[in-house]
């Protein structure tokens, strides 16, 4: 047996497996899940008329006082760049980590301590969620900016809150974009 004798099976099997696993498999998957889950497979996009205004799964950058704010995002060149996901990769002792936390705390302009997820960056830079506690402390600011009673804001948050799946898996969370769409009257 020599290397030469292995050329045919190597080349032919690679070619056939490429057709099957690199061609047929992803194409069939696309057709299949496109038929069963058309909305999910296309990115859970939210449209207003013909305009795409976001995705239910992808966070957006919120800095204005009338909106609920999400996690810090370390994507470049701007936060929440869903074309180039990135975490901060800052180590626990990196001064830049604490600088970012303190800058966020100043912008929030609330008494510390605050929920930790509100002053740390998410892994993807696109986290669509915050904890319920992180939403709660923003209610006074949003209510004041919108001239609405706090209960209205609280109700919008509650409507976009999910608990742990089956009460066990994952963590309770609030979908930030969904809350803001509700507050703007773009989603019921």
């Amino acid at each position: 047996m020599s290397l030469v004798s292995q050329i045919r099976p190597a080349v032919v099997s690679l070619g056939l497996l490429t057709l099957l696993l690199g061609g047929a498999y992803p194409l069939a998957s696309t057709a299949l899940v496109g038929a069963i889950f058309p909305n999910q497979s296309a990115g859970s996009l939210i449209k207003q008329g013909d305009t795409i205004i976001g995705s239910r799964l992808i966070g957006q950058n919120f800095t204005q006082p009338q909106y609920l704010w999400g996690r810090l995002s370390a994507t470049g060149p701007a936060p929440y760049n869903a074309g180039a996901s990135s975490g901060s990769n800052l180590g626990v002792n990196n001064p830049a980590l604490l600088d970012a936390s303190k800058a966020r705390l100043d912008a929030l302009n609330v008494d510390s301590p605050v929920p930790v997820d509100l002053i740390t960056a998410s892994g993807s830079g696109l986290d669509p969620h915050i904890s319920t506690a992180a939403a709660e402390i923003q209610i006074p600011r949003i209510a004041a900016a919108r001239g609405l009673p706090e209960d209205r804001i609280r109700a919008a948050i509650a409507a976009s809150t999910k608990g742990r799946t089956f009460g066990i898996l994952g963590e309770a969370r609030v979908n930030v974009l969904e809350v803001n769409l509700r507050l703007d009257g773009k989603v019921k």
Partner: peptide, 28 residues
Amino acid sequence: LASQGVIQTFDANVTAKTLEGADQVIAL
């Protein structure tokens, strides 16, 4: 996974108009 929202599409990236008025490119 697709049932949970993992995407599967050959469409080009889309650009969303965010609530604060920015353009957000969403890679697919």
